[in-house]
Design a protein around this nucleic acid. Structure first.
Length: 714
DNA sequence: GCGATCAGGT
DNA sequence: CACACCTGATCGC
């Protein structure tokens, strides 16, 4: 939960995500997303009164956030005071003090944050420097490098301070499976269950919060089953969401809620109240999205855990993992960082020990840092003259930091006014004392021991595993065990070969940061962590390893048996879902721009681009409209339903490799970033695996890399 | 009656 | 162990 007090040291006239206490005097308000813990004071009478007596004060947010906010009648009074800013469109804002007439201009840019629909980060540029407030965010590794507006020319902007979402800034949360991995796990589970019969339904036990929409959309798109929800009026102007949710209770996927929904579920009743259809009782499983995390060197990354006869937990995270946070911050490399959140169990000290070494003031700048993403993912043809920053040293490699602009000479001492006026600024103040009193040793904290998964009952196993590895070398590989991965996934020997040959950065370059050695992690999804035993499923009873079908077992199929035909203990043996790593290995990268529906929530206004169509047409096949697909699939479902009366054995579904639709196969190969509309760098492409290999070799040989245009590029 | 805060729940 | 809520009790206005 955010503990940010609302104000930036550099621009105390602004209030962000806090609207109480001294924030009542702000000249402008900003809301990063529509979660309650970022809306404190937003509907309080005090602020309401202020609005009534002011002509100038505005609330700035993304178009989606505005829409979501105004659909809630409690916030309707904001209507004439909200300004929706388009994402990734720098906007000049005049900050006027209405009592003195004093005026100051600031430029703000909204950047997609990948946290929930409409969620953005705010990049402020003004006379006190460039400051990034991340709000809550989940960005995969390397996504900062793809954000054009974080760059100036070919380099990262010179950012004075980052106010950072540090929810999972603790090595315990080293790795959280990517959005794609989680989505695929849930998709397979839901597919397996719902295809048993039309009376097999799934209840997604989601919390009351925005952020699950992309899950609903993807399930609906893939399975042709709309998701039942309590309300959909907030999405009335977001057809790309609206199309996939419904208030019709007679659907096989539910995300509806009821105050006593757990009791309902125990009685085989959905939160919306239904227990049967056409007189036939429903068979309900629940899937509870929850954050699962894994330590640095964990060998397995199950994204689905069975917690009971018909209950599952599925990995799902709104926030960046520890390694994602570090990747993000080290890419930005600001002068200062301030945590917005204190991770539970973590102290301010610990967080700052982790973050400070990634900041400029504490970073050794004698040693060049190689920034693979900064160069690979961005086109390097730009003329240096189009930058607005000091780029005199154009002979420097592009990973070098830009020079520090003049206003940074003082290391940005927080302004006294900011501190004294900020009643909620306790975090900031203690942070300040940090900088004054503590010397941070760079790099050491990158390699602290990591605890393992949050799986309730297999902690022991994990700990042992972890212990045995505690004192190993610091440079860590997140590359997959290619052989076991390959056999696990049943891929051909040729593919195996190329997989085993995946070039590693640390083979060619001296990496001094763990993040960089695992830079490719998201490109080779959790295969990076795939050791011997990996599947999407596990049971939470501590015998998960033994119940997984071994990675050596190449006969991949997905089974879910009808309950009742066997005890759930034995049933677990039939529960297996092909790990998505195979898909990654089979198809390598796939540009999200190359497929149809695809794009998990590609059209989802997750980043506030509901009104921005520029991504929508990309690669979409008009003859393949999702309407048609959904209709067809619904028909299929109806036919399948006839089989619903057959015996349990007959109902076993087997999703063989070949039975997967091409669409799905393609879709799975998107980078984890594809859930959000993080734009690719203009003219950049996501290299295919073999091509990447080739590029790496050239890089290692010191040759220049020529870029070819990819035909499916947008 | 409303809001703020806290405890306890999922 | 998380998050992002929700409900209910209590207190103050």
């Amino acid at each position: 939960m955010s503990r940010f007090g609302g104000r930036l040291r550099e621009y105390p006239q602004l209030s962000i995500d806090r609207f109480d206490h001294d924030n009542l005097r702000a000249r402008a308000y900003f809301l990063s997303h529509c979660h309650k813990d970022h809306m404190k004071g937003l509907r309080a009478p005090a602020l309401r009164r202020r609005l009534q007596s002011s002509l100038k004060v505005k609330l700035y947010c993304s178009p989606v956030t505005k829409e979501l906010l105004l659909t809630n009648s409690k916030y309707e009074f904001w209507e004439n005071h909200i300004v929706a800013l388009e994402v990734e469109t720098p906007t000049q804002i005049s900050l006027v003090d209405e009592t003195t007439g004093e005026k100051e201009d600031i430029e703000v840019t909204l950047l997609p944050a990948g946290h929930c629909p409409g969620s953005v980060m705010f990049l402020f540029q003004g006379e006190n420097g460039t400051v990034l407030y991340t709000g809550d965010f989940r960005l995969a590794k390397g996504e900062a490098a793809r954000m054009e507006l974080l760059h100036s020319g070919t380099r990262v902007k010179d950012i004075q301070s980052v106010y950072l979402d540090t929810t999972f800034c603790d090595p315990r949360f080293y790795h959280i499976p990517s959005r794609e991995e989680c989505l695929n796990g849930i998709l397979e589970l839901v597919r397996s269950w719902t295809s048993l019969s039309r009376y097999h339904v799934v209840w997604l036990n989601c919390k009351a919060a925005y952020g699950y929409e992309y899950l609903f959309i993807n399930l609906s798109e893939e399975l042709g089953i709309k998701v039942h929800v309590n309300r959909l009026d907030m999405f009335k102007n977001m057809p790309e969401i609206l199309y996939h949710i419904t208030t019709d209770r007679y659907t096989q996927i539910h995300a509806c809620r009821h105050p006593k929904d757990d009791d309902y579920f125990r009685g085989n009743r959905l939160p919306c109240g239904i227990t049967c259809q056409n007189g036939t009782p429903l068979h309900v499983i629940s899937i509870k999205p929850s954050t699962m995390w894994f330590g640095e060197r964990i060998k397995k990354t199950n994204v689905i855990v069975r917690t009971g006869e018909s209950t599952y937990r599925a990995c799902f995270s709104f926030h960046s993992s520890y390694s994602e946070i570090k990747d993000f911050l080290s890419y930005i490399c600001p002068v200062n960082v301030y945590p917005n959140v204190l991770p539970v169990g973590g102290s301010e000290d610990k967080v700052m020990e982790i973050l400070q070494p990634l900041c400029r003031s504490y970073r050794r700048n004698t040693e060049p840092r190689y920034k693979p993403l900064g160069t690979l993912k961005r086109a390097c043809k730009r003329n240096l003259s189009d930058t607005d920053e000091d780029e005199l040293f154009d002979t420097e490699p592009t990973f070098a930091r830009p020079k520090i602009a003049k206003y940074q000479g003082e290391e940005s001492k927080p302004s006294k006014t900011a501190q004294s006026e900020n009643a909620e600024g306790n975090i900031n103040e203690s942070t300040e004392s940090y900088r004054a009193n503590t010397t941070y040793t760079s790099l050491k904290v990158d390699f602290v021991d990591c605890e393992e998964s949050n799986d309730d009952d297999d902690d022991d196993d994990d700990d042992k595993e972890d212990d045995s590895e505690k004192n190993t070398a610091q440079v860590l590989s997140h590359e997959p065990d290619a052989n076991s991965l390959a056999s696990c996934n049943g891929i051909s020997s040729k593919q195996q070969e190329s997989n085993a040959d995946i070039p590693r950065w640390d083979m060619f370059f001296k990496c001094n940061k763990v993040d960089e050695s695992s830079e490719n992690e998201d490109n080779f999804p959790s295969s990076a962590d795939a050791g011997g035993s990996q599947s999407l499923f596990s049971d939470s009873d501590g015998v998960s390893d033994s119940t997984h079908i071994s990675s050596q077992n190449s006969s991949q199929s997905t089974h879910i048996s009808e309950q009742g035909s066997q005890g759930w203990d034995s049933q677990i043996d039939t529960v297996l879902i092909a790990s998505q790593e195979r898909n990654a290995a089979d198809f390598g990268y796939f540009s999200r721009c190359g497929s149809r529906t695809a794009l998990p929530s590609h059209e989802t206004p997750m980043d506030g681009q509901a009104d921005n169509n520029r991504w929508k047409p990309l690669g979409q096949n008009p003859s393949c409209a999702s309407d048609v697909i959904c209709d067809l699939k619904i028909e299929d479902c109806d036919e399948d339903a006839e089989a619903g009366t057959a015996s349990a054995q007959d109902l076993l579904v087997e999703i063989s490799d070949s039975s997967r639709t091409p669409d799905l196969e393609l879709k799975r190969d998107f980078q984890s970033s594809s859930d959000f509309e993080i734009p690719l760098t203009p003219e950049a492409e996501i290299p295919q695996r073999d091509k990447l290999h080739y590029l790496y070799k050239k890089l290692a040989a010191g040759e220049s890399i020529m870029r070819k245009n990819s035909p499916e590029k947008r």
